[in-house]
Design a binder for these strands. Sequence first.
DNA 1: CCGGATCCTCGGTGATACTG
DNA 2: CAGTATCACCGAGGATCCGG
Lengths: 213, 213
Amino acid sequence: MYFTAVSKRAYGQFCGIVRAVELIGERWALLIIRDLLVKPKRYSDLRQGLPRIPTNILAARLKELASAGIVRRRLLSRPSGVVYELSEYGRELEDIVLRLGRWGAKSLTEPGREDIVTVDSLIMALRSNFRAGRDASYELHLGDIVINASIRGGRLEVAEGTLPDADLVIETGTAIMTLMAGDVTPAKAIESGSVRLAGNVDLLSRFVDTFRI
Amino acid sequence: MYFTAVSKRAYGQFCGIVRAVELIGERWALLIIRDLLVKPKRYSDLRQGLPRIPTNILAARLKELASAGIVRRRLLSRPSGVVYELSEYGRELEDIVLRLGRWGAKSLTEPGREDIVTVDSLIMALRSNFRAGRDASYELHLGDIVINASIRGGRLEVAEGTLPDADLVIETGTAIMTLMAGDVTPAKAIESGSVRLAGNVDLLSRFVDTFRI
DNA sequence: CCGGATCCTCGGTGATACTG
DNA sequence: CAGTATCACCGAGGATCCGG
């Protein structure tokens, strides 16, 4: 079931934490897993979601993660191609990755000049910071990214794309961070024009409550 | 409160998970945090707990983690010296690190020829795999390491050293892994001599239940 | 076009020696 | 005790090339 460690340079300790770091501690590994937690992906999808990863590193990590039993390489026909997906063992990382995202988001301030937001990072950000709230559905536009989130029965589902019957459509930019972090009130954000809405406008404050950092 | 990222080579994404990886994803960083989660430590204590870490790397990581607001460097007098301790933000990693330990322990098999077990790794291993059970106290000897664990009111406390009034004293080696993983029964382990006991011998199976991987 | 492999450079890591 | 200094090396970064 489980095979070789990813990292060659061993830490020399017999310990679960050390083992975990050897498996997923290499550069880029956890971000590949982040994207695969959203859904199985082709090699080219992964490249697109991680624009700065060197192609040889992506290939190496996928091989290592596969031999560690975390990722599976699956051949598909019609259309033919290759998809990478998480194994059961890999999917067990979901909760850890989400918690890491919540922890890391607390120390996010301004996006750097070269920092981008990807579809998968935004999807995982919503999953990370979700706290149960009343049902609602949202369509969120951030730059040219469109995702939708629906809370039904206290459970959250987030996916890429529009949601025609969303209760609220939110169009915004990176300024949404100040809103989610509570640095600015929903009313102020609307007033300043940093978010534009369509639908049930009152739901914006519920959205903020549901996903507040 | 929070400052520069640890890693210089940026991933180029504005995302909580990316931020987390930039803060604690560098080599050795999470193991330093593992040891500091047990208790504050001197530079030399950290070196002893991480024998394979190059001293310049340890110094660099501590500086980076400090400037990231995860670790604090505290000067103490009488006896004079320096201790490193986790900040509030750093301590928020405890649950994540414990979960990583549980996840990684699942894929541990045999210890490699050069793999050692340290006091802190063993303490964190027990914390990782703890599942609430009835009260009891144990003293565990593994090689020349001695730690003690007491469960009182469903809460676990683990520390280094002996515990004179422990309900059960367990003396064992790395063979304990087969026991904790459920590959061998407590009775068989006693019979084979891979564990030796003193005190209330019947508590061994409760110990296994409480900390089973 | 997809899914990589190859080559080269550069900087972080590892190992050791040394110091206030 | 708590680091700094030096240097060899190897993995990451970046561009290009290749086979189906």
